[in-house]
Design a protein around this nucleic acid. Structure first.
Length: 717
RNA sequence: GGUGAUGUAGCUCAGAUGGUUAGAGCGAUGGAUUCAUAACCCAUAGGUCGGCGGUUCGACUCCGCCCAUCACCA
């Protein structure tokens, strides 16, 4: 190979040590693993590491709940995560932990260098404090009524009902989600990374736009667009300083010279890449400076590549490079960003059983390489969500892998074994040509290198079709009947097996276990990319063929879904607040599950009394132009202004279930003292009560009706 | 509300810088075959390329507006 070999340090986003690996996580890990395996087959030197992200309040609280130390918890979870990755063929060189001496050393070093560079500043901030639990509360641990729409039990950062964003101090009737106590405001000294410093802003503006020395991009175009949005135009300063400290009690690293102050989990999480790498290098025996010192790395020509999910782009494209830059470390060469996973076009859902854990997939005896292939067949370098369409999954794997690919060996190997003592003849050069054509190999090499796996696999499957047509044209089963055609039979089957061998080499980054079986079948050393250039030697002896892969049956998938269905969420919602980490979609899935499955906590009769429910008569109902879900209602609740009846105007989201014409004249129940809310189409002065199944299993929407005799304006209680 | 992405055959997706009859795989239908853990091969049917308008000799491809879905932000 003429090009000098690359030296690449590759990382995957660190999964958080609180929760199982699921099929959504695996998209990014499979994507990175395929890339790493491909680079190695090319002869490049790759160091591929990951770790568990262990710090923060959620881990601390979960450990407390389980009655074990946080250290014990994170060590156990780390083992589970590593086992899941390993079983899916994701082969890290090292799987470390952010709760490690190496990570502490790097975190302190980076912090001290940032401080020396004038990038750290302290200031007091007011924050809610839980007097029972004796801890400061993160936004997600404070709940209360939304200041905008008065919805109950909303988190401290935003309202899930009206979408409003606010500070936790703006919540009405706040309470601690940890203890239930009413929090009190207390002042505390916090440490900030001065991201708003013009130096940092200037650096990031340049860094996110520029390319590497070789002209390659640092991130996908969609990501740099997003950066431009976050950074604003030159002169604008849209970045604010980043709060990197948390008060005790906190599971993490204490900040040097600042007793009782800890590094925020997100400060030391990406540093965990370096820590895992260092831990590995020390074990193997090489110097990490060639990869992480800016001068030495440039001299050695090493690369650093991160694979992350789109939910954590902000941290990796802004905080992380800025931290590294101002602490005098090398910055990343490339951020690969993957989208979320949807299942049958919808968000993963615990109640629907599509929140599928890696472990349950394996327990159902599903082949991990089926999933690796399916993901690869749909992955490209864009930040697009990937849909796991279950029917498509079954069809694609069965058709491509079993019907086309494995079938080639299956239909030819027997002839070679039985008729020719397992020895191969010379191949038909013309038939093998498409598989070894320089142009084809160059195209496929580029596609894999650019992480455009979907187009690579399309090409591989096209070649598999070519091989099947070749066998069909040669008709070995007919040749076998004619002793005069023995030589031709030998050549045809040898050719097809060499075609199959080429396909296996091309698929090996995606299907390493299957490739290993094929290597054993051929009795050869592990395939590398340059093996594509030459077929197996004449006289090479193959082993008896054993079937390489079975088909998926739809009922196996159904069993998997069934196994992942949760009819009741046993964990208390607040015990595991969503934390945006490498836990793709954990948040959405959790709130979805919680909404669907949980009853609200008890309230007092006084609380209930605050809700003014009234019998209302629908005096008018009409569609709202431009609104997909709304019907505009005029509701008579007996109110009179200046001697005239004054009905309330209410926008109700019931268009999908009711025809306005049929609503007029009906009696129903409305909340009369809901704060009026301005909507795009006008003021809404109340709310009509309707029932629906939050889980979405039972369709429909049902407004309430009183028994006959009730009059508009009557109080409901 | 703002920003961005997406919307192409029943399904999952391709379609550089605009150019003759819009592609693949799966599925469907018909045929052929039996070497292959019903796999493979051949053929056929299926799309006004989300909608409306514009630029152009010509647009799936460029521009504007609208609709839907998704994400991020305030």
């Amino acid at each position: 190979m003429s090009t000098p070999s690359r030296k690449i340090f590759v990382t995957n986003a660190l999964p958080y040590a609180n929760g199982d690996i699921h099929l959504g996580h695996l998209v990014g890990y499979v994507q990175a693993d395929i890339w790493v395996r491909f680079q190695r087959m090319l002869g490049n030197e790759v160091h591929y590491v990951c770790a568990d992200d262990t710090h923060g309040a959620p881990v601390m609280l979960r450990a407390e709940k389980e009655g074990i130390s946080p250290e014990a918890l994170v060590e156990r979870v780390r083992g589970e995560h590593l086992r899941d990755f390993t079983d899916f063929g994701v082969a890290f060189d090292n799987y470390h932990s952010t709760h490690s001496p190496e990570n502490r050393a790097y975190a302190e070093d980076i912090y001290k260098k940032l401080r020396a560079a004038g990038m750290i500043e302290t200031r007091a901030i007011e924050q809610y404090y839980d007097p029972v639990k004796q801890m400061f509360l993160a936004d997600r641990f404070i709940k209360g009524e939304c200041p905008k729409c008065a919805a109950k039990d909303q988190y401290g950062d935003s309202c899930e009902v009206c979408g409003a964003a606010y500070a936790p101090t703006e919540l009405k009737n706040p309470y601690s989600a940890v203890s239930g106590a009413t929090p009190e405001l207390r002042s505390s000294e916090h440490y900030f990374f001065r991201l708003s410093d013009p130096k940092a802003v200037e650096f990031l503006r340049e860094w996110t736009r520029a390319t590497n020395a070789d002209g390659s991009r640092r991130m996908p175009p969609e990501a740099s667009n997003k950066m431009r949005e976050w950074l604003g135009e030159a002169g604008e300063n849209k970045l604010s300083d980043w709060d990197i400290s948390r008060d005790a009690p906190y599971f993490g690293f204490e900040i040097p010279d600042a007793p009782g102050k800890y590094f925020y989990v997100w400060l030391d999480a990406p540093i965990g890449y370096l820590a895992s790498f260092k831990n590995y290098a020390d074990r193997v025996g090489f110097d990490v400076a060639d990869y992480i010192d800016p001068v030495k790395a440039a001299a050695a020509g090493t690369e650093m590549v991160h694979f992350i999910g789109k939910d954590i782009l902000y941290f990796h494209a802004l905080f992380w490079p800025a931290m590294l830059k101002f602490a005098d470390y090398r910055t990343p060469n490339f951020l690969n960003v993957n989208g979320f996973l949807t299942v049958d076009g919808a968000k993963m859902s615990k109640s629907r059983g599509t929140f599928i854990t890696a472990r349950s997939y394996l327990e159902q005896k599903l082949n991990p390489e089926w999933l690796r292939y399916y993901y690869a067949a749909k992955l490209n370098s864009n930040i697009e969500d990937l849909d796991l369409s279950l029917d498509d999954f079954v069809a694609k794997v069965n058709s491509d892998l079993v019907g086309k690919f494995v079938n080639i060996a299956s239909r030819c190997a027997g002839f070679i074994s039985k008729r020719f003592d397992g020895k191969l003849a010379a191949s038909d050069a013309a038939a093998l040509a498409p598989f070894v054509a320089e142009e084809t190999i160059a195209t496929l090499t580029k596609a894999f290198n650019d992480r455009d796996y979907s187009s690579a696999l399309r090409e591989v499957m096209r070649l598999a079709d070519v091989a099947n047509v070749y066998v069909n044209d040669e008709k070995p089963w007919e040749l076998a009947k004619d002793p005069a055609q023995l030589e031709r039979l030998h050549r045809a089957c040898s050719t097809a097996l060499n075609q199959f061998r080429a396909l296996t080499i091309l698929l090996k980054p995606v299907l390493p276990a299957l490739a290993a079986q094929v290597e054993a079948f051929f009795g050869v050393t592990p395939f590398v990319w340059r093996d594509l250039a030459a077929p197996l030697a004449v006289g090479h002896c193959i082993n008896p063929y054993a079937h390489l892969m079975t088909r998926i049956e739809r009922k196996q998938i159904d069993a998997l879904i069934e196994a992942n269905k949760e009819t009741l969420v046993t964990e208390v919602k607040t015990a595991e607040p969503a934390q945006k980490h490498a836990q793709h979609q954990a948040h959405a899935a959790q709130t979805e599950a919680a909404q669907a499955d949980e009853f609200e906590p008890f309230i007092s009769i006084d609380d209930f009394g605050k809700v003014d429910l009234r019998i209302a008569k629908i005096v008018a109902a009409e569609h709202v132009e431009g609104a997909a879900k709304l019907i505009k209602l005029l509701l008579d609740i007996g109110e009179v202004v200046d001697g005239q009846p004054k009905p309330r105007q209410v926008f109700a989201g019931i268009k999908s279930a009711y025809d306005p014409a049929l609503l007029v004249g009906r009696l129903t129940v409305m909340v009369a003292n809901l704060a009026p809310r301005k909507m795009k189409f006008g003021m809404s002065e109340g709310m009509v009560l309707a029932a629906s199944d939050d889980k979405g299993e039972v369709p429909g929407l049902f407004i309430l009706s009183p028994d006959s005799g009730a009059q508009p304006g009557m109080r409901v209680k």
